[in-house]
Each structure stands twice: as C-alpha cells, then as structure tokens.
Amino acid sequence: MKILVAVKRVVDYAVKVRVRPDRTGLETANVKMSMNPFCEIAVEEALRLREAGAAAEVVAATIGPAQSADTLRTALAMGADRAVHVLHDPDPTRPLLPLAVAKILRAVTLQEKPGLVILGKQAIDDDCNQTGQMLAGLLQWPQGTFASKVLLDKEKQKATVEREVDGGIETICLDLPAVITTDLRLNQPRYATLPNIMKAKSKVIKKVTPEELNVDIRSDMEAIEVNEPPKRKAGVILSSVDELLDKLKNDARVL
C-alpha cells in the first residue's frame, strides 16, 4: 500500500507575524518559512507505518510556488520516497483556498491511488482546519480527523483512529482507503539527519500544474483587510496574595 502525505510551506511557528501598514496582508519578505508542524507529524506517521510494514511507499505532495520544493525536500530528507509538486504561484490577495487545495489533492490521489492520505489537521498560517475533511468528502472516503493514534490492519483493510475531541478521546474505525488528519500528540516528528538530507537531493520530485491536473482553482472568497487584534491594556504586577484578592473583589468584581 502507498501513503500520500500532503505538506504545506508556512511562516515558521516561532515567527511573530506583522501586518503590513496598508493592511492588505502580512510582512512575509525575509521571514523564515518551514513545514507546517502538523504536516511534519503527518510525514512522521506515514514513515512509521511504512517502517512497521503497513505501507510500502510514502509519497509527499505540496502545492505552491517554486520555493515550496524546499518543503518537499524536508519531507524527502525525513524519509519520504518521492514527491509531487503542484506548481502554483498564488495571487497574494487571493490565496489558494482549502477547497481548491482539496480538489488538486483529489486529482493527485486519483493518479497515485494511495490506500491512505495523511494531512495535518490545520495549517498554522490560515488556521482553516478544512482541507482533509474536504478531500475525504470529494473522494467519498471516510475520514479520521484530529488523530492521536492510528492502527492499520492490512488484512482487513481497516484503520482504527483515536481522535482528540471536545469531550475526550473518540475511537472510530474506517474502511480503507481513508483520509486521516493529525493532531499534536500523534507522534514526535524526527529530525532529518545530514546523510538523509544528502540522500534526499537525488530523490524524484515530479512537477505538475493545476491545469495539467484539470482542476479549476477559482476562488469564492476575498480577503478585504487584515488587522492586529486589539491590545490588552497593560496590567499590574502585585506584591501579595492579599492585594490580588482585594483587586479581584473590588476592582475586577469577580469575587
């Protein structure tokens, strides 16, 4: 069985993003970019399933401009076997929406025919949390979102997924092929070692365009402006518990 993993290049999680003065977007020039942390977890899970003998090949895919190849190289350096790069130069005012991404991934899925697609549950830039669910819906495949544990049964062609939900941990069972999206506690992604980074350079990245995949990427959403959230007014450092209790009682009136 083959596993397809979708990965996204995003502003590094440690970077504090700034709104451009004209409020049309964010300052992204010279900002450190990395693989979305949830996608790293997705790659790691696919690799572990392959190492456990549940899968034979791991294919990484991304959609984006030429620089997105860096993210695919990271996936290959972690251990993915090969990669698919869907080239797309986004219009900054109309970024690619999850629905378009899901349609492109459906096309890649129909070409690659994996038994399982693993994605991060959300990207830490737009925080949409939509793509995996949409891909599953478009393919009419079952979905296991926000996974914290995945067990594959090769014989029965089933995946048992533990999911992090509002009320605790939910367990569901999916017929393969299926779509799984990763939560934080699914695994601890490995670092790429230097020999593996070198090895990754000779692995194959296949390039295609949305047009070649015959996918319509029209957008039905417009970003009007971006703003910084209102700042909280500066608080005070108190010197004692008594002072705190007094403030909570008499100023904040919550006691």
Partner: peptide, 20 residues
C-alpha cells in the same frame, strides 16, 4: 470538534468554501 469535522466535508459536497 463536531462542527470542525463535519462542516468542511459538507461544504465540499456542496462545492462552496466555508469560513472557519
């Protein structure tokens, strides 16, 4: 977790982009 799991899947079936 119910809404986040369901809404995008239904939106894809309806071919529209939801707002999260």
């Amino acid at each position: 977790s119910f809404g986040k799991n369901l809404l995008p899947r239904a939106a894809a079936l309806l071919d529209v982009s939801p707002v999260t």
